[in-house]
Design a protein around this nucleic acid. Structure first.
Lengths: 210, 210
DNA sequence: CGAGAAACTTTTACCGAGTCAAACTTTATG
DNA sequence: CATAAAGTTTGACTCGGTAAAAGTTTCTCG
C-alpha cells in the first residue's frame, strides 16, 4: 500500500486513461454512439483491456460507484453512538453540499453528467441498480444491528429514496439552467425536507381529493 | 375492440405462444442459458418476430409490467375522495393478498418466478427499472395534484419502497420454503408495518448503537 | 545481475442480443 | 377478385461481452 510499485502505478494510469478517454467521448456524443472498440483505440489499448478494467461498458461512465457505496455505508455503520441513521445521513448530505462535492448534485459540471446519463436507457438502468445496491448495503447494516430484516429493508429503502431524490432534484435544477449558487443555497432546505419526510412519514400527502 | 378480427386474434395468440414457450424454457434452465433464437425456434417463429412482440429479451419474462403499472396508477389516481395515497395503496395490497393475487408475493408458484428473476443480473436490473417506473408514475400523479414536484417524488419513492419490499419479503419467505398459508396469514401484519413506516416515518430506527 | 515466475496485454475467434431492409405471405377492403 | 395493408421471414450486419492462447512486461529471489 505504501509503495505502489511500478506495476500497480501503470495499472492505475491505464485505468485512469481509459476512463478519461471514455468520459470525453461520451460527453461529446452520448453513451450509445460511442463503441467500446472506439474507446480502446482512442486510448491506445485493446478492447479486451478495456473490459479487464471495466466489466461492463456502463462502468466506464459510472466508475465512482464503489467509492460512493463505501462512503455511505461507513456513514451509517460508523455513526456516532446515540445517532440515528437518519440523522447521520442527513448530516452527511449537508456536508457534501457545503463541501461542493459532486455527489451533492449542486455542482456546475453536473449538467454534462446528467445529459450523458439520460442519453441511454441502459446507463440509467445501471444507475438505478447502483442505488439499489446502496439500499441493500444499508439494509445489511441495520439487519446486523437489529436482526429485523424486514424493518431494516424498509428503512434502508426509505433512506435511499431520500438520498437519491435529493441528488436528482439538484441535478435537475442545474440542467434546467438554474444558477449553481442558487441551487446550492436552496438545497439545504431540500435535504431537510427529504429527511424530515423519511423521519416522520408522508402522512396523508397529498391532501385528499376534493 | 368489440370484434377483434382474425388478424388481431392471431397476433394475440402468437404473442401468448411466444411468451408461454419462453417462460417454460426460463423456468427449466434460467434466463441466460436460453437464447432468443432458441425460443423462436421452439415457438415455430422467426427471431425477428420475437423482437416484434417483445422489444427486449427481458420483456419476455416480465411481461405483466404494463398491467401492474396501470393498476397501481389507477389505485392512486382514482382513489376515493378523502382517501390518502398511503391508505389507498395499503388497502390495495391487502386486497391483493386476500385475493391470492400473484402480485401479493404470497403465492405458491412464486418460487419459480423468483428463481428465474435471480438467475440473471440483467433481468433483475430490468425489474428494478420497472419499480422505478412505478415510482415515476406515482410522482406524476402527485405533481398534477399538488404542483409540488419535489415532495411528490419523495412520497412516490417512499410508497414504492413499501410496495416492493412487501412483495420481496413474501417472495423471499416462499422461496425459503415457508408454507404459503403461513406466509399469507402473516403478510397482513407485514403490509401494515410497511405502510405504517411510510406514513409515520422511520424515526430513530435502529435504536442508537451501544 | 539474471532467470524464471507471475501479472498484464494482445490477438483471434467466437456467441448472443438487437437492428435494418428487402422479399414474401397473409388478412382486410372495396 | 384485385390490391393494399399488415405481419412475417430472411439474411446480413453491428456491438457488447467472453474465452483461450500467445506475447510482453514487471517482479522476485537465488
Amino acid at each position: 500500500m505504501a509503495d505502489p510499485g511500478l506495476r500497480e502505478r501503470k495499472k492505475q494510469a491505464t485505468r485512469q486513461l481509459i476512463s478519461n478517454v471514455a468520459t470525453g467521448l461520451f460527453a461529446l456524443r452520448g453513451f450509445e454512439d460511442v463503441t467500446v472498440a472506439e474507446i480502446a483505440e482512442a486510448a491506445g489499448v485493446s478492447k479486451m483491456t478495456v473490459f479487464n478494467y471495466f466489466p461492463r461498458k456502463e462502468d466506464l461512465f459510472l466508475d465512482r460507484h464503489a467509492d460512493r457505496l463505501r462512503e455511505l455505508t461507513e456513514v451509517v455503520r460508523d455513526r456516532p453512538a446515540g445517532t440515528s441513521p437518519v440523522a447521520a445521513l442527513r448530516r452527511h448530505q449537508h456536508e457534501l453540499l457545503a463541501a461542493g462535492h459532486p455527489l451533492s448534485g449542486a455542482i456546475t459540471g453536473g449538467s454534462g453528467f446528467w445529459w450523458v446519463l439520460n442519453s441511454s436507457p441502459a446507463l440509467k438502468a445501471r444507475w438505478y441498480e447502483q442505488e439499489r445496491e446502496i439500499a441493500d448495503a444499508f439494509a445489511e447494516v441495520f439487519t446486523e444491528e437489529t436482526g429485523d430484516a424486514l424493518r431494516s429493508r424498509l428503512v434502508a429503502g426509505l433512506l435511499t429514496t431520500a438520498i437519491t431524490t435529493v441528488f436528482a432534484h439538484a441535478m435537475g435544477r442545474i440542467v434546467a439552467g438554474d444558477a449553481p449558487e442558487t441551487v446550492r443555497r436552496e438545497q439545504v432546505a431540500v435535504i431537510d425536507q427529504a429527511f424530515d419526510l423519511a423521519e416522520h412519514g408522508v402522512g396523508a400527502f397529498p391532501a385528499a381529493l376534493e
